[in-house]
Computed example of a mutant assay.
Amino acid sequence: MRSTRPLARLAMIIIAIIAVTSPGAASATGARRVHVVWPGQSVQAAIDAAAPGDTVVLRPGTYRENLSITTNGLTLVGFGARLEAPAVPTPAGCVPAEQPNPVGVCVSGETDADTGQTVEVADVTIRGLTVGRFPSTGIMVLHGRRTRIERVDATGGTAYGILILRSSDNTVTGSTLHGGQSAGLYIGESPEARSTVTGNRMYDNVTFGIYVRTASYGIITGNQVEGSCIGIGFIPTHPAEDAVAHWRVTANRITANNRLCESASGPVTGIGVYLGGTKEITVDHNRIEANTGAPGTPHSWGGGIVVNDGSLYGFPNQPIDNQIRHNLLRDNLPYDIMVVVPGTGNTITANRCEASSPPGLCRPRTGSRR
């Protein structure tokens, strides 16, 4: 007897199609609905009409809007859709109302005007959307919880491709982030970040590929990071010793971060992973190569992995109890691993590399390349 499962699946698809509505339509029964937007229609109108749990689908084409999402559980899907900056920006909760909005998509909690308390927006998903260059940032999450950003392509402006601020339990996966003057991805001011950054490509961002600033708890894994001054950087801007703590950086490929940036300490260039005043961060099983610095630029420190205090960009916190192990490093200059400030309790072991400062931190490479 032939299985009825294909017929059941077909029936589910038909039901889903029947549920599709035009922008502005809403559910009278409370069931989750799909709102479809075509080029020339307003994406924001569909977002405003959506109830918690609804999905807004953008048909392929170009949309010139600033978008603001404050609804819990909303999913925005845009495979083949491109968001571009409008001629006249519209306000959103990520920036003060009196300022022009420089952000492409703003996911933000709302502040009660009477109490001043901010309620997080939860369970928002952005999937498949291409975000062109907005003046500052492609996608911003402010006071968000369990936000998922999946398979997006975001071009940064003067700041970031994606900016996650004062948020928790967020995921960025399968995305391409490029062109940000400050970073491809920024996670900051989030003491309970609990973020997952996996399977992304960050390239041609200026200062950082991934920038973690005063945020703790998370994993950065399976990413390709290239073409910045610093590939992945952890920076405290708070004096607490655990201002940046409890991250794992594993199974990433971090190559050729050789742009030239300036800092209070002079030129910064050619750094794969930078631990600046961090606590209990594990860097393991990464491949870190060809971080050599900008051509013709003299630099006395830098290379594949650098351990320092936090004074380069933030407070002079000491590095404490970090673990650097089982990484493959090669062709980094001036060193594969460099400890500028030793701190306390840091462990550097079983790394396959050639040159370190101080000497003796490398295990010579043997056998085939992985």
Rank of each mutant, 00 (worst) to 15 (best):
F208R: 02
A159I: 11
Q41H: 08
E289Q: 14
A50F: 08
R145T: 15
R32I: 07
L7S: 05
G184H: 04
G156T: 04
S357A: 13
I164W: 04
T292N: 01
T70L: 10
E226P: 00
W301A: 11
V20S: 09
R146V: 09
Q41I: 06
I17L: 15
H35R: 13
F234K: 06
N200S: 07
P60E: 03
Y217T: 10
P364I: 13
G184W: 00
E354F: 11
T176C: 00
Q41K: 08
V249W: 01
S68H: 13
Y211R: 11
P239I: 13
A85Y: 00
P359I: 06
V273L: 13
I220S: 04
I47D: 12
R325M: 11
T173M: 08
T75I: 12
E98G: 04
H238V: 12
V121L: 10
D169W: 14
E354M: 11
T70C: 02
D242K: 11
I187P: 00
L10T: 10
T29K: 07
G227K: 05
I232H: 04
T344L: 11
Y211Q: 08
R145H: 14
D54F: 06
N252P: 01
A16L: 09
I187W: 04
L142G: 03
G310A: 09
V283Y: 05
P23R: 06
P267Q: 07
I235W: 13
T115L: 12
T297Q: 15
P135T: 02
